[in-house]
Design a protein around this nucleic acid. Structure first.
Lengths: 156, 156
DNA sequence: TTTATATAGAATCAATTTAGTCCTATATGT
DNA sequence: ACATATAGGACTAAATTGATTCTATATAAA
């Protein structure tokens, strides 16, 4: 796995949808319909994204949500942060706890390094990228996507 | 988040512990003690790792487990695969489903790309690396760990 | 050959987490 | 005023995960 929660998944879909027309104000109902989730669910996500300052919200009649910044200034990592809390692959990498052995504590450092590397990848991809069709090449923004050979044998 | 399950976390700790003495045969009880988890839990993890061919198991008295390959030939990605099933950040990236809009299907491609990038990172790190102390520099094996600046503003 | 020690594998139970919904309050345009 | 929309919190139900237990099997040693 290494899964994102479903809500976060929806969140990225919603954000990507909004990124296609950055100035437009979308109501929760509109987005719920466009993305195919129930209104309360979309609402919940939108509220969170607004609270975390990735969206601006407008209350009252004709209100709704719009992106707080241009799509190219909102990264996937930021969306994940907003919807899933502090970034970290393992519990241990955020807060030490178990593992009485020195061995484990050594691991902690490694996990933190891994977190940084993964985060870097997700931070290098913006909403703008997500609206672009994947050109089978590399829509990487400014980071080279180097060779793909790796040492694993049986895993795709 | 983007969390690994706790069992997977334990699994990596166990594997890293075993990697310090690659030839040695460890009983489940021994490992449970060393790593600080209950015996049944360690057992469960070890059985899975053995079934997925990352460990060899020896039954009977004086039995136990040992690494199936040298530590530098077992990547973190492989351990995660074994304990968490098919690699993928989103449900959508493994099996399409929701998202009636064309927008969403475009996203799918992007998620798959993201999966590949993350996997590459985790595949570049082996058990051998995990046993090494983190030298504050870069224990990367053959992949350069480039600059750390990224575009996000408020997130650590 | 019997006994003690270990793993294999399936099934089960409890706890936690997550998804989804609902309710009340507040803001704004007509 | 009234209709429309978001804010925020509380609540419920479902799914996932963690942890344990049970039976079967294999092996070393007495």
């Amino acid at each position: 796995m290494l899964r994102l929660s479903r809500l976060t998944d929806y969140g990225t879909v919603i954000m990507a949808h909004m990124a296609r027309e950055p100035g437009h104000v979308y109501s929760a109902a509109e987005l719920a319909g466009a993305v195919g989730v129930a209104l309360p669910t979309a609402s919940k996500i939108l509220k969170t994204l607004a609270r975390k300052a990735l969206l601006h919200s407008l209350r009252g009649a004709h209100g709704g949500y719009l992106l707080a910044r241009p799509p190219r200034e909102i990264s996937i990592a930021q969306v994940i942060d907003a919807l899933e809390g502090p970034f970290g692959v393992t519990e241990c990498s955020v807060a030490a706890g178990l593992c009485p052995q020195e061995n484990a504590c050594a691991l902690r450092r490694h996990w933190q390094r891994i977190d940084r590397a993964l985060r870097q990848t997700l931070d290098g991809l913006t909403l703008e990228d997500m609206t672009q069709p994947v050109p089978a090449g590399m829509p990487e923004r400014r980071r080279a996507q180097h060779d793909r050979r790796h040492r694993s044998d049986g895993h795709g």
